[in-house]
Each structure stands twice: as C-alpha cells, then as structure tokens.
Amino acid sequence: MRAVVFDFFGTLTDPGVEAGRRGAAAVTAAALGVPADPFWQVMRETFTERITGVHGDTRGMLRMIAERCGTEPTAAQLDAAVEAHHAGAVPLWRPRPGALDVLAGLRARGLRLGVLSDCGAELCQGWPSTVYAPYIDATVFSWQEGARKPDPRLYATAARRLGVAAAECWYVGDGGSREHQGALAAGMRPVLVTNAGYPGAARHRDDPDPFIPPITIEDLPELYALTVQGVDM
C-alpha cells in the first residue's frame, strides 16, 4: 500500500462543526434576500447539482437558489451573498483534532496522500490557502470533475494523480455519499472512520453508505497502526 485517499468533510475536518452548516446558510440567505428555511430546503434538494458544477460558480449557484425561492436578486445582493457564503464555508474546514499531525506522520512514512471530496466551488477555490494543502499530493473535487461519489472514475482519477494503482490505496472516510462502495468498486481498500467520539455527527452526512468496510477505526490516529501492520489489521 502506497497511498491514502481521504474524504474531506467529517473525516479530515472536525465532525463537530457540521452542526453549524445550517446557521452559515442562514447568513448567506439573508444577504441574498431569501428566507432562511426555503433557502436551506433548496440547498438540500440541489446538492448533487451544486457539487457537480451544474450551475457554475458560487454566484451562479446562489442565483439559481434565489430564483427557485421566487426571488430575483440584485447584483449587490449576489455580491454580498457570495462573500457571505465563502466566509461561512471556512469554519466548516476546521481540522479535526490531530488530523494535521496524522497527515504529517503518514507523509513521513513515505505514503502519498490525496483528498477526494464532494464539494462546491468554494472549497475548490479556497483549497490552496487551507492548512491541509501542504500535506496533500493530489485532490479530486466533485465540482471540478462534474461527478460525485460513488462514481468509480473519481477514485481512479485520485489514484492516477497520486501516481499509484488503485489497489495500492486506502480510502478513508466517514461513510457519506456511499463513498466506500465507490472505493471498493474502484479497487481501493476502504476504511470507515466511525467518529464514535462525535455523537450526532452521522446525521449530518449526505446519503450514508449502508456498506460497512471490514476495516473500521474510531479516529484518524489509528491509521498509524494500519500503515505499519498492513491490510491484516
């Protein structure tokens, strides 16, 4: 095994911050001139569209949501809403405790590291400035690729960008978006992070995966044992 591909939200990020996602959306809705509850409902209904770039960048996405809520936003409202949306996304990127140390430790062991995330334009645009970027060798973002997990092509792309075979990759995630099924279909070895120390985190996952991989860990530091002991952990 030569590489580890990570899910982002709820895996590298602090699962505890996911509860704040709706509050951040309410701030964007206010800037856009749309009531918070309809805005949130359309956000949820258009998840796949938003994260695969159907509506373009953040501005185009917010215009679409406003129109579906029956509002025609002004240019100034769109400007303010884009700023609010990007500002509200940053706290959701907060690392889970110890995550950066784990990434540094795995790199020190010679492993290639990747991130495969279902995400919108804001993470794609903000990635270079995140605290994660120096540790990650390759990224695959659904918004840029026009596809979402569990599409096996995303996993194949991650392996290719890391310069390894899919069979040489662990895929580590918290189980949203049926991601482990996709990893297995692509030839990777899936690892479930149960987030047992974060009660309630699972209810914020999109499209939870009914497939439970044979290898499960409660938190990321357990990956050290996995990389030492190999696939027989």
Rank of each mutant, 00 (worst) to 15 (best):
I136K: 11
I136M: 11
I136A: 07
D137F: 09
T139Q: 11
T139L: 14
T139E: 09
T139W: 08
V140W: 04
S142D: 08
Q144Y: 11
E145Q: 15
E145A: 15
G146M: 09
G146P: 12
A147D: 13
R148V: 06
K149D: 12
P150A: 02
P150Q: 12
P150I: 12
D151E: 14
P152T: 10
P152N: 09
R153I: 10
L154R: 07
Y155S: 03
A156H: 15
A156L: 14
T157P: 04
A158F: 02
A159S: 15
R160I: 01
L162H: 14
G163I: 04
G163K: 03
G163N: 10
V164Q: 13
V164M: 00
V164R: 05
A165G: 14
A167V: 09
E168M: 08
C169M: 07
C169A: 14
W170H: 09
Y171M: 06
Y171L: 05
Y171H: 15
Y171F: 15
V172Y: 03
V172E: 06
G173V: 04
G173N: 02
G173P: 10
D174A: 06
D174T: 08
G175W: 05
G175N: 09
G175R: 06
G176S: 12
G176Q: 06
G176E: 10
S177K: 00
S177A: 15
S177Q: 12
R178C: 08
E179C: 08
E179A: 10
E179P: 10
H180E: 00
H180R: 07
H180Y: 12
G182R: 01
L184F: 03
L184G: 01
L184A: 15
A185C: 09
A185Q: 15
A186G: 08
A186I: 09
A186Y: 02
G187M: 03
M188W: 05
M188Y: 00
P190I: 02
V191E: 06
V191F: 08
V193H: 00
V193N: 01
V193M: 01
N195G: 13
A196Y: 01
Y198P: 03
Y198M: 03
P199L: 05
P199V: 00
A201C: 08
A202N: 07
A202H: 11
A202P: 08
R203W: 05
R203S: 14
H204S: 04
R205N: 13
D206T: 14
D207S: 12
P208R: 07
P208G: 13
D209P: 14
D209Y: 11
P210G: 13
P210L: 04
I212H: 01
I212P: 00
P213C: 12
I215N: 00
I215K: 08
I215A: 10
T216I: 02
I217A: 11
L220Y: 00
L220E: 00
P221Q: 02
P221S: 03
E222M: 14
E222S: 15
